[in-house]
Nucleic acid binder design. Structure first.
Lengths: 224, 224
DNA sequence: GACGCCATGGTGACAAAGTCACTGAAGCGT
DNA sequence: ACGCTTCAGTGACTTTGTCACCATGGCGTC
């Protein structure tokens, strides 16, 4: 992970994230810092779980590759978030049901299974953190189900563009957008086409420039 | 709850479920047994959470009533299962994001918030139980998302009929089936119509008789 | 530069699903 | 017997999803 102030040591950088996990007193040797490149598969469906990762910087996509290659993105683990699926696998001694892939260069704290279990047994703050992550994830998944059922692709698309916009642009392919919002690539292409014609966005290869975020917001909110 | 053997006392009946929760040593006065009638709302979106319920007999439907009355069923809490959403609300001190409604007469063990927290802090077995319930629920929700995206309503309908069949019949209205599988009532009616014409099922008001479960199984598995 | 190759995106045609507006039928209470 | 409510069936129409195919842009190699 990058230190914001150049004078800080690696230890200084770690202090705050560890504190949030209730792990400020954990001896350094008991946790790993891992650094993974964009596209790296952190875990794959069927793997046994070796420990509990917490994303420090970057982002990990959790997805499943369905029977027909129809791959589904469930959520992304962002900075400061832990992996609920890993926690579940560790507790239940099950194998991963999904894939975890780095969206970009990512650093993560990695607690080996033994440390995870021990901390969960002895450390109230850590327990609260892990539980909190679970609760958040259940909430997100329910919201997503709700959205899939009661909103159309255009609404989800508008919302997603806003959510993933950075500096006025979204850098993704139509296929990636489609996987994220749970529809087909062609549907995304068509809706983006109408957004272009309406003048809300502009398109380049891999990149979508948001011109009128307000209009998208309205679309995302009202639905149509 | 009903005792299976008439000679058993209430205490005897409770022993096994409590053991599974790691609560065999919990003083009786610290937990409540609640008995609710069909249709009773156990909690509603916006309510504060007062404790952790575990279903002993019966079934609780967890659902949301969307902005357009489009109501969505997320899952059902069955016998022996605890309510993950309640656990999350208790830990995070949040309000319920969803409704919980008894599908039929239901008995539940109800641990007040203080007991829940205390046991979570001190009781390894209880902790494992609560975690296990969370992990299971996350898995179920992900499976449901997958199914919504990559399977058609006919597949989900067939699977759901089989899952809810009791003694060869399913006692539900088309509207209820639709909410369960995340589609419109009309779509359910039409698909049931084709199943009738194919001779796999028969229909009466509120009731669907399954004639050829094997055919439904094939439909549920292959999709179409 | 010429040539392919592959990833990306555009499009038309068709099938399936979702929505809307009604109709009809079954149950239930008065 | 009557009216009310809930439940189910249907036609017309719009939107999605799928399939097949083409166009373009980038990026190699020769």
């Amino acid at each position: 992970m990058e230190c914001k102030k150049p004078t800080e040591t690696m230890d200084d950088c770690m202090r705050e994230p560890l504190r949030r996990l209730g792990l400020q007193d954990l001896p350094q040797a008991r946790a790993l810092i891992i650094r993974i490149l964009k596209g790296t598969v952190l875990f794959r469906a069927g793997d046994a779980c070796r420990g509990y990762p917490v994303v420090l910087t970057g982002e990990v996509r959790v997805c499943r590759i369905g029977p027909f290659g129809h791959d589904v993105v469930f959520y992304r683990v962002r900075e400061g978030e832990g992996c609920a699926v890993s926690a579940g696998c560790l507790m239940e001694e099950q194998r991963y049901p999904v894939f975890g892939v780095a969206e970009r260069e990512t650093t993560a704290l990695f607690l080996p299974a033994s440390v995870f279990r021990e901390q969960l047994d002895t450390n109230v703050a850590f327990r609260a953190y892990v539980f909190g992550q679970y609760a958040m994830r259940v909430g997100m998944l329910m919201t997503q189900i709700d959205s899939l059922i009661s909103e159309g692709p255009s609404t989800r698309l508008a919302r997603h563009l806003l959510a993933r916009m950075q500096g006025g642009t979204v850098t993704m392919t139509h296929a990636e957008l489609a996987a994220d919002i749970g529809t087909a690539r062609e549907v995304v292409s068509r809706h983006l086409g109408t957004l272009v014609r309406a003048g809300w966005i502009r398109q380049r290869r891999q990149v979508i420039d948001i011109i009128d975020a307000g209009a998208l917001q309205a679309l995302a909110h009202t639905g149509q």
